[in-house]
Structures are given as structure tokens and as C-alpha cells.
Simulated assay, not measured.
Amino acid sequence: MKIKSVFLVHANGGTFVAFRKTRERLPIKGVYAEHPGTAMGQEGAAARTAWEKEANKQLAERLPTELQNQLLAEGLPYTAPADND
């Protein structure tokens, strides 16, 4: 399959990528791929799991620093809480 031979098909309210199996008008073959929005909306989907893992990691690393920066920018005193783990 060559990328220049694919085209969009609009049918039944949806759109998908297709290519021709022969030189004739029909049959065509649909090429399906999951939309990122669909994967993110499904509990336990690989994309969502990876995103949640990375988001939680970045939140744990960046939140204390960002809070401190904002409080200092507003002129409020900041004392880091004791780690009670």
C-alpha cells in the first residue's frame, strides 16, 4: 500500500481511511486506527494508563516547587511540610 493511494471515506456519520484493493472502483479496504480521544476515555486502555502514570509522576515532582514559587510570588511565607511517611 502506498500512502498516496489512500483516501478518506465519509459514511454513516463517520470517516475512515481506505485504499483500493484492485484498480476497480470497488472493493475498498478500510484502515482502522483507534482515535487518541477514544483510548483516553476507556478505563484501563494502554494510552490512558501510560498518561496517568506519567501525569502522577510529574505532579509528585513538580507540585511542591510550583506551590512554593506561587506563594513566594504572592509574598506569602512558605514552609515545606514535614514528610510523615
Rank of each mutant, 00 (worst) to 15 (best):
1 M>P: 14
1 M>K: 10
2 K>I: 07
4 K>E: 15
4 K>R: 13
4 K>C: 13
5 S>P: 00
5 S>Q: 13
6 V>C: 10
6 V>R: 08
6 V>T: 11
7 F>N: 02
7 F>S: 05
7 F>M: 02
8 L>W: 11
8 L>T: 07
8 L>A: 12
8 L>I: 08
10 H>E: 15
10 H>D: 15
10 H>F: 10
12 N>S: 15
12 N>L: 13
12 N>H: 14
13 G>T: 01
14 G>P: 03
15 T>C: 07
15 T>Q: 07
16 F>I: 04
16 F>T: 00
17 V>N: 05
17 V>F: 10
17 V>C: 09
18 A>I: 05
20 R>V: 01
20 R>G: 04
20 R>M: 02
20 R>F: 03
21 K>Y: 05
21 K>D: 10
21 K>N: 10
21 K>V: 00
25 R>C: 06
25 R>W: 06
26 L>A: 09
28 I>P: 01
28 I>D: 01
30 G>V: 02
30 G>M: 08
31 V>Q: 07
31 V>P: 07
31 V>R: 04
32 Y>T: 13
34 E>C: 10
37 G>S: 08
38 T>V: 09
38 T>P: 00
39 A>S: 09
39 A>Q: 03
39 A>T: 01
40 M>W: 10
40 M>E: 15
42 Q>W: 13
42 Q>M: 11
45 A>Q: 03
47 A>V: 04
48 R>N: 08
49 T>I: 05
50 A>L: 08
51 W>A: 12
52 E>Q: 14
53 K>C: 07
53 K>V: 01
55 A>D: 03
56 N>S: 15
56 N>A: 15
56 N>R: 14
58 Q>E: 14
60 A>S: 14
61 E>G: 11
61 E>Q: 13
61 E>M: 08
62 R>V: 05
62 R>P: 04
62 R>F: 13
62 R>I: 03
63 L>C: 06
63 L>I: 01
64 P>D: 04
65 T>E: 15
66 E>G: 02
67 L>R: 05
68 Q>T: 05
69 N>V: 03
69 N>L: 09
72 L>C: 02
73 A>W: 11
73 A>L: 09
74 E>T: 07
74 E>G: 13
75 G>H: 09
76 L>V: 11
78 Y>M: 01
78 Y>R: 03
79 T>A: 13
79 T>N: 12
80 A>Q: 12
81 P>A: 02
82 A>Y: 05
83 D>Q: 12
83 D>S: 09
